[in-house]
Amino acid sequence: MGEPRIKNEDQYEALRNKGYSKEKAARIANTPNAGEKGGKSDPYEEWNKDELYDQAKNVGIEGRSKMKKSELISALRNN
């Protein structure tokens, strides 16, 4: 199993160059509207469970299949 796919490579590289961990840089670069200014992405509480699961999969969160919606939100915020 390879590394999760990065949706916004330029943003990912910029974050890595600023010292962000691979996981945190990937999480940020894979969010909807990645690279847009002004925090236009909806808060995780407004996402449905499938969207949260897909985001957790994108950033490589382990055990996501057994998590409740609130646990997915917490895992995504603290990854």
Rank of each mutant, 00 (worst) to 15 (best):
E71T: 10
T31M: 09
K69C: 10
Y20P: 05
K49E: 14
G35T: 10
I28V: 06
K66H: 12
A34E: 04
E9V: 08
G39Q: 10
S41V: 02
L72S: 06
R77M: 12
E51T: 04
K49G: 11
G2Y: 13
N33T: 11
Y20F: 06
E36Q: 15
A56H: 05
K69H: 10
K40S: 11
W47K: 08
G63D: 14
S65T: 11
R64M: 07
I6Q: 00
N58R: 07
S70L: 12
Y20W: 09
N8M: 10
R64W: 07
K22I: 04
A56Y: 03
Y53F: 12
N8R: 06
E62K: 14
D54Q: 14
N78Q: 12
P4A: 13
K7E: 12
S74I: 10
K57M: 08
N30T: 02
K24S: 07
D54P: 07
G60S: 06
A34F: 00
R5A: 15
N8K: 10
Y12R: 07
E45M: 15
D50H: 10
A29T: 02
D50P: 03
N48D: 15
T31L: 12
E46W: 13
N8P: 08
K68P: 01
T31F: 08
K37T: 14
E3T: 05
Y53D: 00
Y44P: 05
Y12W: 14
Q11C: 06
Y44H: 09
A26K: 05
Y53R: 07
E9H: 08
R64I: 06
Y44T: 11
D50G: 08
D54N: 13
R16Y: 00
K22T: 05
Y53S: 04
E45F: 10
P32H: 06
P43F: 04
I73D: 03
L72C: 14
L52S: 03
I28L: 04
K37C: 14
G63V: 01
Q11P: 07
N30C: 13
D42W: 10
I61K: 00
A25W: 03
K24H: 06
Y12P: 03
I61Q: 04
A29L: 11
S41G: 07
K22E: 09
S21R: 11
N17Q: 15
K69E: 07
G35N: 07
E9W: 08
